[in-house]
C-alpha cells in the first residue's frame, strides 16, 4: 500500500493539519518509507491471536457523583488565548 497525494490530503484533513505543499511531499515520502517496513508484519500468521490493547487489565473506575471542590474558574481560564464572561471565546460557530 502506498499513500497518494490525495490520501495525504484526506488524512491531513482528518488530522486537522493545514499542511504546505512541501510538507505534503516530504510526509508522503517518509510515511511510505515507514509503511514499507510495516509490511513485514504481514509475514506473521495472527488469525488466532488476540489483540493487546493494554498489558494490564483496564476497566472503568467509578466513583459516587458527589460534589467536591473544583479548580477555580479564573485559574482554569488563565491559560486560554481568549476569554469572555467566564467562557472560552472561539470564532463564531453558529449563524444568527
Amino acid at each position: 500500500m502506498r499513500l497518494t497525494a490525495q490520501d495525504i490530503a484526506d488524512v491531513a484533513r482528518l488530522s486537522r493539519l493545514e499542511l504546505t505543499e512541501e510538507e505534503k511531499e516530504t510526509l508522503a515520502k517518509h510515511i511510505n518509507r515507514l509503511l514499507e517496513h510495516f509490511e513485514k508484519l504481514q509475514e506473521l500468521d495472527t488469525d488466532d491471536v488476540e489483540p493487546t490493547s493494554h498489558v494490564i487489565p483496564v476497566y472503568n473506575v467509578f466513583r459516587k457523583d458527589e460534589p467536591a471542590p473544583s479548580l477555580p474558574v479564573e485559574e482554569v481560564l488563565a491559560n486560554a488565548p481568549d476569554v469572555a464572561d467566564n467562557c472560552f471565546v472561539v470564532p463564531r460557530v453558529v449563524e444568527t
Binding site: M1, A12, L17, F38, Q42, T46, P51
Partner: peptide, 26 residues
C-alpha cells in the same frame, strides 16, 4: 499524527492497527 490517523482510519484499521496489536500479543 498523520501515520496514526491513517492507521486508525476506516479500511486500514485491520491491516495496520489491529495487526500491530496482535503482533504485540506475540
Amino acid at each position: 499524527i498523520m501515520i496514526g490517523t491513517y492507521a486508525l482510519s476506516a479500511g486500514y484499521y485491520d491491516a495496520y492497527y489491529l495487526k500491530a496489536q496482535k503482533v504485540r500479543t506475540l
